[in-house]
Design a protein around this nucleic acid. Structure first.
Lengths: 144, 144
DNA sequence: ATAATAAAAGACAAAAATATCCGATAATAT
DNA sequence: ATATTATCGGATATTTTTGTCTTTTATTAT
């Protein structure tokens, strides 16, 4: 469903939110450990997320990645769009270039329902809300 | 959602069913043209599908790939299991090794709903039924 | 038996996704 | 100003997925 890059991105952003809610900035080393992902690869993804305004960063000592009021409305949907693009929301399930209700693939109608449920999943809570759940221990970003 | 191999597989099996319902066997050349997929790659996938008993084949002149009564109950679910395995049905959306309602990732509950909808999509009609729809022109396997 | 036909099997090639490394740049603290 | 810390950007490597090609095996028709 999501690329590995995207899975890392989602977990990283929630991790950063958890830290930000406690007033801390995070560096790639902490983040990659916190979400059990390769460090350099995670760092690359973080750069993309900063460019796409999902998170913010600051260089130098006392620097790091963080989230604030500017990012409060963001959801996992925004992360997926930033990393994987709109393929899972727009593309045909069977990969047809042209697939519409007028000219549907055999899966078309049922695939729409899956897609709608997916959109609900990705937009029903903000990243901040998800981070609060993780902060409370109601959900986890990794197993150690 | 599905790998390219799996998309080809789904379309190929439905194509073969359409031909089988009209009493014809199909060879990789016809199949790959009919579903707009690379021929040799499709041939490889067809071998797997035969091994997994989704379709049948016969060598030699008058040979080819076909479906019959033995395959009437098969659904896209079986094709996906044969090609992509159970990852999309069993795996965690965020890629956690351990993810359960007791120890959930932040997406866990909503992801279950998506998965259930996905299972409905893949099991509500047999491949034969889908082939009849394609034969009637109600759905297509490729655009030309 | 032999030639023709079609799938099966295995080796190989290209492309994309995943992952690593290193120098450059920016900001801070002293 | 300078040393230190941390992100940024580009080059490179590895792995997986996708795709191709050639030989072998099975079956049929003559």
């Amino acid at each position: 469903m999501f690329s590995k890059s995207c899975q890392y991105a989602i977990k990283a952003v929630i991790f950063i939110w958890v830290q930000s809610l406690e007033g801390r900035k995070s560096n790639p080393s902490e983040i990659s450990r916190g979400i059990n992902a390769p460090q350099s690869f995670t760092a690359k993804i973080l750069q993309t997320l900063v460019k796409k305004n999902i998170i913010a960063s600051f260089k130098g000592p006392t620097g790091g990645f963080f989230s604030n009021q500017n990012h409060e409305a963001k959801t996992i949907f925004d992360v997926v769009m930033a990393i994987d693009g709109d393929t899972i929301f727009e593309g045909c399930g069977l990969g047809l270039d042209q697939c519409s209700s007028a000219n549907p693939c055999p899966l078309h109608d049922e695939f729409l329902k899956v897609r709608n449920q997916t959109k609900v999943m990705l937009t029903s809570k903000t990243l901040k809300e998800l981070a609060i759940e993780v902060g409370d221990g109601a959900a986890v970003l990794a197993r150690f």
